[in-house]
Design a protein around this nucleic acid. Structure first.
Lengths: 145, 145
DNA sequence: ATTTGACTTAGAATTATTCTAATTCAGTAT
DNA sequence: ATACTGAATTAGAATAATTCTAAGTCAAAT
């Protein structure tokens, strides 16, 4: 485990301040958990990982912290097929791949131009502020990571 | 309200048979409800609409019928942001637009070529059998329908 | 020092969905 | 026609992720 670096702490503090919220040890720890292992953990998983660093934290607080991080814009929720919500600190535009065998979720980089093209399929009466792209299928071989 | 036409009944019977299941009045009625008003109803809404045509049907049966229809391939589930699952009998490849104001979901036709292009962003180790594309935002004016 | 309001916490409540166990039904074999 | 078989339906209980509630804690500002 790696603690939150000074740089990440600054980022967090600024983003929270910008949305009228405070940095707290719990929020820093949860954010650190997300940055540390970018495997799209569920709230349960975040709770378990956070608890090992901060044993007194409660599930409710984990939910609160995650919500705070999302509202500050540093973390995105990833919802796939009514499964428990997953959390993702990858702010670059990207798609997701959901493996039917393992249930794991992988980030898929999306080229700049593709996002532009996607916007074009929308008829004029719609104006979208977010696009979500999820692939589902299988991994060719075994992905070790 | 419009009853299930002979053609739709055939389609349903064939699809069910193909997946080793039987056509029943409940399944026909639920399917009719979905074809009748293609506004992506939730199970609750399907239940209410179906009950007005077949007052004795139960919620469990509605869930069972929806599951059956999905497994037969005639209906697709549409999941958006952990909201209750919606049901959609539109089999053509299409995207969805989720209005932040009303919560309504609209079908957005996607040109053939776009789907092809989307597949290309997937690195070789992934093989996708389904793609989900959801836009979220606002409608320019008021959409009356 | 005291107040204020934000934050954390444990546990209860909510809610969409699934499960269970009993009943009904349709088709087939007797 | 009648009995069997497995599928389908049903009411209600159970599940599980998330949200809510109400009480307690803390940090900053007066």
């Amino acid at each position: 485990m790696r603690l939150l670096g000074q740089e990440d702490k600054e980022t967090l503090a600024m983003a929270l301040d910008h949305s009228g919220q405070r940095a707290t040890p719990q929020r820093e720890t949860v954010f650190g958990v997300l940055l540390d292992q970018r495997d799209h953990p569920t709230a349960d998983e975040v709770y378990a990982r956070t608890k090992s660093r901060m044993p007194t934290i409660s599930m409710a607080t984990v939910y609160n912290c995650l919500e705070t991080l999302v509202s500050s814009g540093l973390v995105k929720q990833v919802n796939i097929e009514r499964e428990p919500t997953r959390y993702c600190p990858n702010l670059a535009p990207h798609a997701h791949f959901h493996c039917r065998d393992t249930g794991r979720v992988y980030d898929v980089p999306v080229p700049e131009g593709m996002m532009k093209d996607l916007a074009k399929v929308l008829p004029g009466e719609y104006s979208a502020d977010s696009v979500e792209l999820v692939f589902r299928g299988h991994l060719a071989k075994e992905k070790t990571k």
